[in-house]
Amino acid sequence: MINPQMVMYEEEFNQIQAVVDRLVRDANAKVVFIVDKNGQLIAASGDIDNVDTTSLASLTAGNIAATGGMAKLLKENEFATQFHEGEKANIHIQLVGNRVILVVIFDSRSSLGLVRLRVKKASEELNGIFESLLKKVAEPGADSPFAEITDEDIDNLFND
């Protein structure tokens, strides 16, 4: 199939969420989230009620895609790390295993050095989790919840 699906199961989700939760604490971050390269939010932690994570996820993916495009033009494989410094908030963006994007938003209570250090460790853990997730998804017999839907189910969605 040309368009393989990204699938998230409970087990891996909990592992990922644990890494993200811990990163918020260890890095003194405001918000940490993980996005896939297509802009879908995978997990988030921290002060997420005050941040529009859906929009940020989409823009982060756009940003990574654009940076990847620049890298290609310079014959680089990728620029795996980005850092945006604001007056109050800073964003650290890290590509993990060329698959997902780890975003850390922090303020003056933390520092770039600390964030980089903690992100490095978290990236390694995340890479392992996503690798086993991908293996699991590739296994035959993993059934889609959508295999059984009927035309009626789909039509019902559009009945105003």
């Binding site: 393989p4 699906q5 990204m6 998230m8 409970e10 989700f13 297509n38 879908q40 919840p145 959508f146």
Partner: peptide, 15 residues
Amino acid sequence: MSFINYMAREINCKL
């Protein structure tokens, strides 16, 4: 590439 999240019970598609 759609994204099926069993945990959040949602499916995300890109148009």
